[in-house]
């Protein structure tokens, strides 16, 4: 897995240490700590994992093993507007795959990656529980229901002028 190089500021290291301490540096709380860390950094670069490992007294390899096991954790920064396409069964039978293909085609990035300008990233998720609105797409926290292939460019247009 590739990772972005990044040097943590002292204040950021301190932040991570505080998180770890808030969970009593208990190795069993590793996943909770990683959730918090990802909330702050938006992703979990290697450097963050190193600090977390040190604070939680587990090996870096183990932290990496956990991070790469769970799809919620990412080592790549997401776009400013992360696009998630629901590919749960209900959305799938109502055409989610075509919608996904359209996003990939228009943004020219595969699933799991971010556009060069850092604006959009595409991920798939499994069922957001809005099956009545299938197929469902989320951009950030905003949910779009009954999305058609045509509708894809309209969704992207909403974010066009924003910098």
């Amino acid at each position: 897995m590739t990772s972005i190089k990044l040097k943590l500021k002292d204040s950021e290291v301190q932040q991570l240490k505080d998180i770890a301490r808030s969970f009593n540096n208990e190795p069993g709380e590793l996943i909770n700590v990683l959730h918090k860390a990802q909330e702050i950094f938006g992703y979990l670069p290697a450097e963050v994992q190193e600090v977390v490992a040190g604070e939680m007294n587990v090996s870096v390899a183990k932290v990496y093993g956990v991070v790469t096991f769970y799809s919620f954790f990412t080592m790549l920064p997401r776009g400013r507007y992360p696009i998630s396409i629901c590919t749960g069964t209900a959305c799938y039978v109502r055409g989610a795959e075509k919608v996904l293909d359209e996003f990939k085609r228009l943004l020219k990035v595969p699933v799991g990656e971010t556009t060069e300008d850092g604006k959009f990233s595409i991920t798939c998720l499994r069922c957001v529980g809005a099956c009545g609105l299938a197929p469902v797409v989320m951009v950030g926290d905003k949910t779009y229901g009954r999305v058609t292939t045509d509708g894809v460019k309209d969704i992207l247009k909403e974010y066009e002028d924003e910098v």
Binding site: T87, G88, T89, A90, Y92, R126, C127, G129, A130, C131
Partner: peptide, 12 residues
């Protein structure tokens, strides 16, 4: 940890 892609009763 409802994970079945197409079930959302636990969530509800």
């Amino acid at each position: 940890d409802e994970g079945d892609p197409g079930a959302f009763m636990d969530r509800s």
